[in-house]
Design a protein around this nucleic acid. Sequence first.
RNA 1: GCUGCCAUCGUCUAAUUGGUUUAGGACGUCGCCCUUUCACGGCGGAGAUUACGGGUUCGAGUCCCGUUGGCAGUACCA
Length: 550
Amino acid sequence: MSNDERIELAELLFPNIKHDRNYYENMYPERKLKEGAMVTRFGPSPTGFVHMGSLFGSFCDSVFAKQSNGIFYLRIEDTDQKRSIENGIDGIFSDLDAFDIVPDESSIVGGEYGPYIQSERTEIYQTYVKDLIIRGYAYPCFMTEEEIAAIREEQEINKTKLGIYGVYAVDRDLSLGEIKEKLNNSEEYVIRLKSPGNSKNEVEFIDLVKGKIKFPENDMDLVLLKKDGTPTYHLAHVIDDHLMHTTHVIRGDEWVSSIPLHIQLFDILGFDRPQYVHTAPITKKDDGGIRKLSKRKDPEAKVSYYDEVGIPIDAVKLYLATILNSNFEEWYLNNSEKSIDDFTFSFDKMAVGGTLFDLDKLNNISKTYFSRKSGEDVYNETLAWANKHDLEYAKLLEENKDDMIKFLSIEKDGPRPRKDIAKYSDVKEEFSYAIDSMFIEENYAKNESNKVYDINLVLDYINNYLDLNVTNEEWFNKVREFAVENGYAATPKEYKKNPDDYKGHVGDICEAIRVMITGRMKSPDLFSIMRVLGKSRILDRIDLYSKIYK
RNA sequence: GCUGCCAUCGUCUAAUUGGUUUAGGACGUCGCCCUUUCACGGCGGAGAUUACGGGUUCGAGUCCCGUUGGCAGUACCA
């Protein structure tokens, strides 16, 4: 086809495209950012809610943009209208928002480089494709699905590479006359790349996490515009990331094999290539095999799962940070005052292979997260959570605010704070003794002890020995005295030496008190609990206990 | 089939870029200690002949080749 014929073809195919590419090049000039600032983007399809994998991706995007004083923007990739679901976009925004991942530019907050929804950029894509046709790098392809399937079958039998390339790209050299004829017959077509590549040549590129990768050059005539004039991911990626001036394309590593195509497209279009960062998937063991975490099969893949179960969002982010950079975990352990924002992430500390999702680790991270929070913070966060997921409990929390904070603050100060809560829902369980109205008979059934304790002994102690206005040490010494007077050993050690000489030891007395006033065998510091409760509530509980066990 | 990536304790990983490594840490697990219980903390154990085989080298977890295994892509889906 001659130059003039290609221009004629381009006009024929895209009569409505009036601008040329310079129009857009001028409309979206280079960003004015500091040296080293990264421009990253998250490009979800509105096909459902955000899952762990894409949350991880967007977390990377935002972290690297933030720490380099760059820009993180969100681009909705909805070029496949068949898969898009209703409210899909809203779901993405609300999920990201819940994790405090805030794009600097998006279809909601706007920005100079929009529109940020691909379905609104069709004209832009077509402008560039029109240019490609004029320059002989693209052509209309009229192959039907059946024809393509037949080719594929043939290729499978011959065990050659699958796809439309070389001799299989039957429409790549159609004459203008032939094309016109098909157009007049209203045959449907797509626009394919007329790949200038040769698979015998090698292309090389640097991936910032995987390093140098070599591929055979792309020689496939891949689809650029679909039958409906909408772009494929490949085309949209190249044009958008160029026009929006993305510096670092961070995406899942299922894309690495398309790299030869993408860099070819960048080159043909005369764009600078971005840096590529391909991240390993988060995986899960399943039936002996390993697969990506799946929204369908794994509840923990759903980002909303964590909120439902009561794992703090920041704990999840902390976990994401530990799988993002292998040196983060140790840093966080050694910097108890710092937060994720204080850590400098780097691409070379990212895992190359897939990472198995480890709920145990998340749990542990969540526990240390809680241990570093003050009682008041734990209270406030738990209340906020309960307001969403357990209104009844939320009400009780509000009614018992002062007490709750006191209980939650026990053994919180000092270098080794308590580390017993992993989820907001644990608070209700672990602190079941904290709220009077929840402290009912059934509580005692849960104390996992079959023992029946000596009520009179405990009453004697409470009435005649307990002084709540002393130090913990003074208090415990008193308990010791009381124990000895009643035939109990002062220490467990003494008891163990001569068990026959005693009825038991101090610990047994504490256990009796603990079970009666908390309903549990385990609790934070007993004396602290008693101080919060006060004598009369202690007596009430003993009274309740005696009703059941007498 | 073709193309590419990956391979260190159950899991996540470290190993100053080939040089005291009896391969380090964290999570999990087990035991002991601390202790009025639990949690925390401390100490310790089990758990990896660095997938396997060859090569280069004075020296290999680290470099090269092969094998095996896992993963991904191979769409008018992203």
